[in-house]
Amino acid sequence: MMAVRIVRTLAFRLVFYTGSVPILLLVPLVALIGGQRAMIPYAHGWSRFHRWAAATLLGVRTRFEGTLPDHPVLYAAKHEAMYETIELSFLLHGPAVVLKRELTRIPLWGYATKVYGAIAVDREASAAALRRLVKEAGVARAQGRSVIVYPEGTRVPHGATPPLRSGFAGLYKTLNYPVVPIAVDSGRFVPRTGWPQPGVVTIRLGAEIPPGLPRREAEARVHAAINLLAGAGGEG
């Protein structure tokens, strides 16, 4: 069984990363022709490619639970694998993504994230870093665009429930959007370390949390909601 998982994983990496190269090389042309309006559906094409490769070669599929809001929101998602970051961009119809500033410095990829409208965040929780985050979030708000953040700050093993980073509170206050928490269990099947196993990743949208709540209450409600699947187990 382990040998099969290793072979499937290597096949996935070969197909997905090799296939992503020409997609990435065309980014400047797509940006030149259509800017952000063209980049968002182009990125979703890449997401579909990833979904196909994961299902076909890894046996990993997605179960999406919940109803998408019809107004701008701040999505706050659990982060256990790269898998959900690619899936959610497509499933949520292209929200502005909060990501690490280091990723915006990668040649071509960084350019793609800027055209897409990503919001770069610094690792340090300094006042200057938070001001930059709030300023970039304001651009998304002016566009009436939803925003997605992974408020724990990094990928965590399935079952881990670290506290939220301070940047979430800044976004919550600046955007003044309702928050839609998102629970995932991708770490069961596509762990940060080790070999993926076949299964169905659950992505579950929670009930909206209204804007304007006291910081501690908002953070507590988001933390509880994104960790609803933290105790999930089994093979899916």
Rank of each mutant, 00 (worst) to 15 (best):
L10S: 13
R13K: 09
V15T: 00
Y17M: 00
A31C: 05
L32M: 11
I33F: 10
Q36H: 00
R37P: 04
P41D: 06
W46K: 00
S47V: 05
L57R: 11
G59T: 02
F64M: 14
G66A: 02
D70M: 05
K78P: 11
A81I: 07
M82N: 15
Y83A: 09
E84Q: 11
I86K: 05
E87A: 11
L88Q: 13
H93L: 08
H93S: 13
G94Q: 00
A96G: 00
L99R: 07
E102A: 13
R105G: 07
P107V: 06
Y111N: 11
T113S: 13
Y116H: 03
Y116R: 01
D122N: 15
E124I: 14
A128W: 10
A129R: 03
L130W: 02
R132I: 07
L133V: 10
V134C: 09
A140H: 02
A140N: 03
Q143G: 04
Q143R: 15
V149P: 08
R155W: 05
P157G: 06
A160N: 05
T161H: 04
P162K: 12
P163T: 15
G167D: 03
F168P: 05
L175I: 06
L175N: 06
Y177Q: 08
Y177R: 12
Y177V: 15
P178N: 04
V179A: 07
P181H: 05
F189R: 00
R192I: 13
L205E: 08
I209M: 02
I226A: 10
L229A: 05
A232Y: 04
G234R: 02
